[in-house]
Amino acid sequence: MLITAPNLSRPDDSYARLIALHDGLSEDESHALNARLILILMNQIGDDAVLAQAMELAKKPT
């Protein structure tokens, strides 16, 4: 079951880390890094049903 309730232990730190990760990268480099990160996080989640829910949620326009 996908967690949509707050689950980050340090939300501000984690978000700042994500943004800082891309400092100085070209757009192509940023895209490649994001792809690697998504794959690594996908493996961490593991469960295909949870991944499917996350992908479905991400697809919805904000």
Binding site: H31, A32, A35, R36, I38, L39, I40, N43
Partner: peptide, 22 residues
């Protein structure tokens, strides 16, 4: 974008066993 992910998988697969399954 499909090539982007494909290349990311190949890059990670050299060192990370999980990526080899993909």
């Amino acid at each position: 974008v499909s090539k982007l992910f494909r290349d990311a998988v190949l890059g990670l697969a050299a060192t990370l066993p999980f990526a080899r399954t993909i």
